[in-house]
Each structure stands twice: as C-alpha cells, then as structure tokens.
Amino acid sequence: MSWLDRVRKSIPFAQKRDTPDNLWIKCPSCSEMLFTKEYEENLNVCPRCEHHGRIGADARFAQLLDPGFSVLPSPKVKEDPLKFKDQKKYPDRLKAARAANPHPDALTNAAGRIEGRKCVLGVQDFAFMGGSMGMAVGAAFVAGAERAIKDKCAYVICTAAGGARMQEGILSLMQMPKATVAISRLNRAGLPYIVVLTDPTTGGVTASYAMLGDVQIAEPGCLIGFAGQRVIQDTIREKLPEGFQRAEYLLDHGMIDMVVPRKDLRATLANVLDYLGAAKAA
C-alpha cells in the first residue's frame, strides 16, 4: 500500500449525503438554476425572467378554481381506429403517455367556480403527447361544452397543443369542426366561452377552438400560431419580425384581447366572467 493510500484511509470523511434529483430546476429561458419548491410556489414562473413554465391539468385546476371543484370523467372513444404504427404502435404510445400522466388523455374538464363564478374549466396538458388533438380531445371538449350548457355557466378552456394527433389522421382533423359546432351551441345558449392560450398553442387547435373565444387571453411569452415559423419563412421567403407568433406580438396586432401574468389570471377570469354575466355563488 502506498503512503498516499495510507494517508487517505487514515482521514475520517463524512458520509456522502444523498441529494434528491428534483431539488433544482433550470429555467428554459434564462438558464437560471432555481429551487424546485420556490419555483412551484411561484406558480411555475421564473422569478428572474418571468418565463411561464408549462404546467399540467391538476396544477391549473388548483391555481384557477375555488376549493371543492370536481374533475369530470373523460369520455370513452375508440382507440387506434386506423391501426397506426410508426416506430411504435399507437396503443403503446398511449399506454406510455398514460403511465406518465394522471389523466387518460390531453384534455381534462372540471366543474367548479372561479372566485364564486360558476364555470366548467377545460385544460390541455402538453405533457400528454404534446397536447395533441385526437378523438378523445374532441369528445372531451364537446363534453365540457355540454356540461356548461347543462349547468348554464361559462366554459373556460386553457389550450396547450402541438396540433392534431397524426396517429389518428383525418379523424383528428374532424375534431376541428366538431369543436366549432359545440362553441356555436354555447353561443346560441347565450353562455360565455373564454380561451386562455398557454405555451404552446399551435396547429389545428389554433385553427379551431383556440381562436373562437368571446374573450381571448394569453399568458406572457407563449407561442401561438398555426404553421411553424420556418415553414412560413421558407414559404414567403422573408425574414419574420422579432417576437412573431408570441403573445405580445398577437396582442399588438389585434389577434388576442389581453396578455395576463399567471399570478393575475384567476382574478382576471373572475372579472371577465362578471362582465359576461356569469352566475355567482349564493
């Protein structure tokens, strides 16, 4: 044994402490390292650069709805109607997505109140296959609208999607007119339909129910668009303006009504529901 090994073994070292893997989180915008607990307490918003992180349906329900809300059951639809297979079978992709997420598909509804104003709140979760719009999302959207009509209250939807679900082909695109008809039914019933655009909202979702709200609200900095920036740039052969397809750019050009930080979103929705005549708790 060398003298170095003898010296090293004679020095008492403290036991190595195990550090949880999820103690820190890196902001995707400014790369600042943040305590996960502090980040979550700040509604998943970076305290340095104000980047609004993506959150799931349960976190969104807890942030926006009064205590006592109820999550509505997800409608049953035929799975894998086209027997689609790419690198994996579609049922295997669904199984993996469901194992990693608390809800059976990308859109989940809950019935409750926002500061006493009755509503049905739908939330798309980008973590579930990119929030993609398939038959299950279309059925959930229609179910949310029908529940709002039954309860005579507003339907509020928080969108987050990469577009239509490619594994369902033309059937996914059929959800666009299906959702539009459901919105028409809300309009005929005289009930508010409010859209909260979150990062990202793109593709067929943007081309349908995401841009048909009575009031369009967006979180700061979120990406909103139909085709990707590179596709547009290559098509028109021009450089796009700085901030193109971001919430603030769309606000400046009249595409949305307001950009609201997450900490103010609950109060803003309550005010909008007031203006639109939503029912308050007795």
Rank of each mutant, 00 (worst) to 15 (best):
A218G: 09
K263T: 08
R246A: 06
T198N: 13
L173C: 12
G203I: 07
M33F: 11
E146W: 01
K83R: 13
C46R: 00
A14E: 13
R188N: 15
P102G: 07
L4H: 12
D66N: 08
H103C: 02
D274R: 13
D234M: 12
L34D: 02
S70V: 14
G53T: 00
L191P: 09
E79D: 04
V195T: 15
D151N: 13
R98C: 03
A97C: 02
A218S: 14
G138Y: 01
P47T: 02
Q167N: 13
P91F: 06
A189W: 06
V156G: 07
A210P: 04
Y155W: 09
R237W: 01
E50H: 15
D274I: 08
A97Q: 01
V77I: 00
N44R: 02
A279F: 10
K37N: 06
L121W: 03
G116R: 08
G254Q: 03
S10R: 13
R6I: 07
I157N: 11
G162W: 08
I236R: 06
G130I: 00
Q167H: 12
R246F: 07
F13M: 13
V71M: 04
A111R: 14
R185W: 08
K37Q: 09
C158A: 13
V7G: 05
M1S: 15
F61I: 07
R98T: 00
T202F: 10
P20V: 07
A136W: 02
D5G: 05
M166H: 12
A97M: 06
V71H: 08
T268N: 09
